[in-house]
């Protein structure tokens, strides 16, 4: 599987990397970080050009994120959100999520681009559905994706020979960080609930 994808990168180059980062923004299972690292490794060897790899990955990722946001905002996401908020079962949780996004939305968008990247696609949809100001979303998105691309392409450039091992390790570190963050947030909410009911 991994080898087939790496074969695609060496065969088609930039196009595959852009496509992978674009599709990963819609929660499709794309090993986009491995492909960015492969791009960096090929750039180090002289098969690809470094700035083109960065730009290609960056363009794909930003386009994908903006697509998710705009879809949620203008193609029904807003109405779905309003409907969910009227339902008593989900109203409170969603109002809380919306308030959190209004207060810390910029950071949520920035950090879910690279550090908690598995959550990125969903944050795009929530940001669009709750009408987070587009300029703020765009700025946080640009900064976050730039960080993501810079980190992985640099790692690929430096660790060229060991990208597969690095990707296996790092993928699980990101998974642990994301699951850990969700655990902490839920733990905090549960704790607050318990104190409130006492």
């Amino acid at each position: 599987m991994t080898d087939t994808l790496l074969l695609l990168v060496s065969d088609y180059g930039l196009l595959v990397i852009s496509l992978a980062t674009l599709l990963s923004c819609f929660a499709l299972p794309m090993p986009s970080s491995l492909m960015m690292m492969a791009g960096g490794a090929f750039a180090a060897a002289g098969d690809l050009v470094l700035w083109q790899v960065c730009l290609g990955a960056f363009a794909g990722a930003v386009l994908g994120d903006q697509g998710g946001y705009l879809l949620a905002r203008y193609r029904g996401g807003e109405r779905l959100w309003a409907w969910l908020r009227r339902r008593p079962a989900s109203a409170r949780l969603l109002t809380q999520a919306e308030a959190l996004l209004a207060r810390r939305g910029g950071w949520a968008v920035y950090l879910t681009r690279w550090l908690f990247s598995p959550l990125g696609p969903y944050v795009n949809l929530i940001a669009g559905a709750t009408r987070m100001p587009w300029r703020r979303f765009l700025l946080a998105d640009l900064a976050g994706e730039a960080t993501w691309v810079a980190v992985y392409v640099t790692l690929g450039y430096v660790f060229g020979t060991q990208i597969e091992e690095l990707s296996d390790t790092l993928g699980n570190v990101i998974g642990a960080l994301t699951a850990g963050m969700v655990t902490l947030l839920l733990g905090r909410a549960l704790w607050a609930q318990r104190r409130a009911t006492r």
């Binding site: 087939t4 074969l7 990168v9 060496s10 090929f42 002289g46 098969d47």
Partner: peptide
């Protein structure tokens, strides 16, 4: 790491 079919000449050289 073993040599693999996806590798390119430059990549292998480096």
């Amino acid at each position: 790491h073993p040599v693999e079919p996806w590798m390119t000449p430059r990549y292998i050289g480096r």
